[in-house]
Structures are given as structure tokens and as C-alpha cells.
């Protein structure tokens, strides 16, 4: 038997959420779209004017924008698979029976990197990776490795950002996948382990199908996180040296907050939003359908 819910009740339940979303999400977005169609520089208000799609044309033909997009994509392509593999290994270890105290402590320690403010993570990296005084180079020295110029070398700085991102977000992936593993019916898992001694077979044919929704969630969230990655590289390298760690969000912040060109920064943001939406739809289309 189904109970028909009145429109008023629906409106009462949904209304506040829709209203809040409209205020904090939709209205600023529409404002950003409107401003992206203007020359709008905070320090040159007298020159404000409607320019149509000129800002978009400038962004789409701007080498710095595409280079920043390329760097962001490279970061994503390298960091996220590593996070998924490491996260899956941690989740599988924690999913095994036994070692309760160890697993509780591990779960707790997994929360720490995620709970640390992004900007603080970047500042920590800046100090810890300092070539002369940083603790990491000191530890490398103990095992006879020459100090590494992590922050001052373009390639090393990029690698350092990737490693730092992996450190911070692998625990998040592990916890999501652990939650996904808990949705696998125990009797099916037990039956499978009786059928085969191969952990890989159990993972591939029993556990992985249940992990697909979690993996899609991880992909969507990590894609969005990577596209908006700002605090950590900004405090760690400020986009440098050169442009080595100028990811797309760092570039947009530079244009909007340091050059005060809000119209251009809005156009960059809208393009980035479009990219995010397209990627999210692709994930859902190609991965999520398997478990429909």
C-alpha cells in the first residue's frame, strides 16, 4: 500500500533545502556567469562593460590556461590511481577478520591526514621538504641519500605535490572502499573463499562489483577535489617554481584575487565547471551502469 504525500508536505520538506541551495549555490553561479560576460576588474570599475563571450575566447586561446589544465590532468592521472590501489589494499587488510585493536588504531590514524587543513598540509610540506633544514632531507641523510631540492626544482616540486596529495587522500579512498566492502554479503564472501584460494578471484568476481558505486563516488569526488586543488600547492609552492605547480585553481585564484580580473576568472571557473560536469556524467555513464 502506498501513501500519497501531499504537495504541501513535499514542499515543506524539500523547500528549505532547495531555498538554501538556491542562495548559496545557484545565485552565485548565475552571478558568476553574468560577470563572465563582462570586463570586470575590481581595481578598474570605471572600465566595466559587457563584452559577450570575449573572456571565454581569451581563456580558450590562453596557453597558460591549457598548461594549467594539463598539469591538473597529469596530477589526476597519476595520483588518483595510486590512491585507489593503495586505498584498496588498506581497505582489504582492514576488512579481514582479527587484529581488532590494530585495525581500530589504523582507522583512527587514517582520519588524521584528511582532518588536517589543506593549507596547513602545504605549509607542513614547505617546512618538511626544505632542502637544508627540512626533516625529510635530514632523514634521507641518515640513510646516505644526498639532500633533494624538492621545492626549488620544477619536476621535484610537481612530484612532491603528487606525493603530498597521495598522503592526504589515500585514507579517504581507503575508508570509502572499506565501507563498500562492508556491503558485500558475508555469506557470498564465505562461499567464494570456499570455492577458491585466490584472493584475486574473490576480489575480481565478488567484492569488486559491490565496490563499483564506491569507486564511482571516489572518482567523482577526487576529480572535483583535484580540479579545485588550491590551498596545498598555494601554501607549498605558490604555483612555482616557474609554473611547475600552477594547477587550474591556482591560476584562477591568481587571475581573480591578485590581478582582480573577476570577469576573466569567472569565465575560467565556468569552463572548469563544465569540464567537471562532463567528467561526472562520463563516470556515471561508463562505470555506474554496471550495477544498475
Amino acid at each position: 500500500m502506498t501513501t500519497k504525500v501531499s504537495r504541501k508536505t513535499l514542499a515543506a520538506f524539500l523547500g528549505p533545502a532547495v531555498f538554501a541551495l538556491a542562495i548559496v549555490g545557484i545565485a552565485p553561479l548565475l552571478f558568476a556567469v553574468w560577470k563572465s560576460l563582462h570586463y570586470f576588474n575590481l581595481t578598474k570599475r570605471a572600465q566595466e562593460r559587457f563584452v559577450g563571450l570575449e573572456n571565454y575566447a581569451t581563456v580558450l586561446t590562453d596557453q597558460a590556461f591549457w598548461e594549467a589544465m594539463g598539469r591538473t590532468a597529469l596530477l589526476f592521472i597519476i595520483a588518483v590511481p595510486v590512491q585507489i590501489v593503495l586505498g584498496l589494499i588498506i581497505a582489504l587488510v582492514l576488512h579481514r577478520p582479527g587484529l581488532t585493536l590494530f585495525k581500530t588504531l589504523t582507522r583512527l590514524s587514517l582520519v588524521l591526514p584528511m582532518a588536517t587543513t589543506y593549507a596547513v598540509v602545504g605549509l607542513l610540506a614547505q617546512v618538511m621538504l626544505n632542502q637544508k633544514y627540512g626533516v625529510i632531507n635530514q632523514m634521507l641523510g641518515w640513510i646516505g641519500i644526498e639532500s633533494i631540492n624538492f621545492i626549488g626544482d620544477p619536476t621535484n616540486a610537481f612530484i612532491a605535490v603528487i606525493l603530498w596529495d597521495i598522503w592526504q587522500w589515500t585514507p579517504f579512498v581507503a575508508l570509502i572502499l572499506l565501507a563498500g566492502l562492508s556491503t558485500v554479503p558475508p555469506e557470498i564472501e564465505e562461499a567464494a573463499t570456499l570455492e577458491t584460494r585466490s584472493n584475486w578471484t574473490v576480489l575480481r568476481h565478488v567484492q569488486l562489483p559491490f565496490l563499483i558505486p564506491s569507486l564511482v563516488a571516489v572518482l567523482i569526488l577526487r576529480t572535483a577535489d583535484t580540479l579545485k586543488l588550491f590551498d596545498m600547492p598555494f601554501t607549498m609552492t605558490r604555483g612555482g617554481p616557474g609554473s611547475a605547480t600552477e594547477f587550474i585553481a591556482v591560476l584562477i585564484e591568481r587571475v581573480g584575487n591578485r590581478q582582480f580580473d573577476i570577469g576573466m576568472a569567472a569565465a575560467q571557473s565556468i569552463i572548469m565547471l563544465a569540464v567537471t560536469i562532463v567528467l561526472a556524467r562520463l563516470y556515471i555513464r561508463f562505470f555506474y551502469r554496471e550495477v544498475r
Binding site: 626544505n130 632542502q131 637544508k132 633544514y133 631540492n149 621545492i151 626549488g152 626544482d153 616540486a157 609552492t237 612555482g240 617554481p241 616557474g242
Partner: peptide, 21 residues
């Protein structure tokens, strides 16, 4: 100059001097 000088801000530079390096 020390290696990685492009990563030196005021703090690192003053510190390198203050440490005698």
C-alpha cells in the same frame, strides 16, 4: 647561491644567513 634559490622567500633567506650558511 644555495641550490633551489627560486624557492627562497624572505624567511628562508634570512634564516640561511642567521644560521651562518
Amino acid at each position: 647561491m644555495p641550490e633551489g634559490i627560486v624557492a627562497y622567500d624572505h624567511a628562508e633567506t634570512v634564516n640561511a644567513f642567521a644560521q651562518g650558511d
